[in-house]
């Protein structure tokens, strides 16, 4: 928490990797100021190449979306509704309501991760702290994780960027965590909109924050943590105002492995039917 100084879980050294403690990110847009320090810190620490210097015209978001060279992405939502009891401009609440929301998006580190299951090389693994990690030296760039992520996070890095051809996404700063450091984005976040810590602590904290906000008039505050779907919850979860669609988040994300059974059944049936058809054709039409 702000005010805790170096005692905050965002600043303290830790031994989560050594102790095999599940960790997470809780990202709260109601205290985000849209400074993009998380994007910068992520790029600096992980030496991620730039993602283009194009002017999108989408509010102050010139980053676009998560991808192979974008591991943190601050979203800028402009909506025509009130933000809690805040009054925009000199008018009353119901006159020309407006709210500006900033939310730092990141890899969700799913409980059941589509990319991890799909990876045919075993390059994508689950770490001691429960995060999902791509081992860059093993990945051969087959691109199957790209279409297996229900959140559209992971992508293959195109030529001629450094380390091109491999799949990349947020590493949860696994290298920093191994040394007892906090992920770069959380460390640098000036308002602690991104909080790093033990997953169970964060879940409790998230629930408490939603309650607090609803008490203060933010009626549409909710947690985005799809525990009811086949993804079974995410380790980097968010507080959102309004519906997840507006943030480009799927309301009911599913891990693609749930489709395997029916697809393989169709495949085996077709395989058997093809063999029978061919044998019948040769037996009766000769």
């Amino acid at each position: 928490m702000i005010g805790e100084g170096i005692q905050s879980s965002n600043q303290r050294r830790h031994s989560f990797v050594q102790d095999h403690v599940e960790v997470g990110f809780f990202t709260d847009p109601t205290v985000c100021i849209g400074c993009k320090a998380c994007e910068v810190a992520c790029k600096e620490w992980n030496q991620v190449p730039d993602d283009g210097f194009t002017w999108s015209g989408n509010s102050y978001d010139n980053t676009g979306h998560l991808g192979a060279s974008t591991w943190r992405h601050v979203m800028f939502l402009e909506q025509d509704c009130a933000k809690g009891n805040q009054i925009a401009g000199p008018m009353s609440l119901d006159q020309d309501p407006f709210r500006w929301i900033f939310l730092s998006d990141v890899c969700k580190h799913c409980e059941d991760a589509g990319c991890l299951e799909a990876c045919p090389t075993g390059s994508i693994v689950r770490t001691e702290v429960g995060s999902v990690l791509v081992q860059n030296d093993v990945c051969n760039g087959c691109g199957y994780c790209v279409v297996s992520c229900p959140f559209g996070v992971i992508d293959r890095r195109p030529q001629p960027l450094p380390d091109a051809g491999g799949a990349f996404k947020c590493t949860f700063c696994y290298d920093r965590q191994k040394s007892g450091l906090v992920p770069a984005c959380a460390k640098v976040c000036p308002t602690e909109s991104i909080v790093f810590g033990r997953l169970d602590d964060l879940r409790a904290r998230g629930a408490e924050r939603v309650h607090q906000l609803q008490q203060s008039g933010y009626n549409d505050a909710q947690l985005y943590d799809p525990t009811e779907t086949s993804v079974r919850g995410i380790h980097a979860f968010f507080l959102i105002l309004g519906e997840p669609e507006a943030y480009g988040l799927p309301p009911k994300p599913q891990i693609p492995t749930i489709y395997l059974k029916s697809a393989w059944t169709a495949a085996f049936a077709t395989a058997i039917a093809s063999i029978i058809t061919t044998l019948v054709a040769f037996a009766f039409f000769s």
Partner: peptide
């Protein structure tokens, strides 16, 4: 493949849950 020289890594593991 994005990295054709690493194609042999395909044969590192046998994963029934990965159609690839």
């Amino acid at each position: 493949l994005g990295r054709p020289h690493l194609f042999i890594n395909m044969l590192r593991v046998f994963k029934h849950q990965s159609a690839m």
